[in-house]
Amino acid sequence: MLEFISQPWPWYVAGPMIAIVMFSLLLMGGGFGISSNLRTMCAILGAGKTCEFFDFNWRSQIWNLVFALGLIIGGLIAHLYLVPSAEVQISEATMMELSQYGIESPGRSLVPESMFSWDSLLTLRGFFMLVVGGFLVGFGTRYAGGCTSGHAISGLSNLQLPSLIAVIGFFIGGLFVTYLVLPTLLTL
């Protein structure tokens, strides 16, 4: 059993599991939206004193923070107990392309090690990818009122036009960076 679930999971297992997670959260009286936690954390850190957007009863959102804590534990369990190999099964084309950009053995670990290291923060590439990237994620999710879980999964499942617009936006932004920015950024 443990060996079985330790293999990389195919899309047709992961997709239905994600839908079940959303369904479970609805049944428990919550909703599926992870980026709201960033707003809640700002509120807990006292942002409500200087900005009314964060002045709400964050205690009602503790369940979602507990869910996020579960994500960290889930990642830890997968990392410690369910890893026969840390390789990511990306396509040949992706591997070849990223090698050309100077990424060492693409797919060997979960994330490109040279980029996701503390040292890389001091390089232009690392600073852009991690700090600026994080900035854009934080700002964008709140502006759009949701991220992948809130719009792409929950919103589309509820046939919401605003979520479709948001997802189209996700792709416009993502394609722009991937095709026009990353080729330069990755070789910095």
Partner: peptide, 9 residues
């Protein structure tokens, strides 16, 4: 908002 998020994603 979606585009900004997509850039960061």
């Amino acid at each position: 908002g979606g585009i900004i998020f997509g850039l960061g994603w």
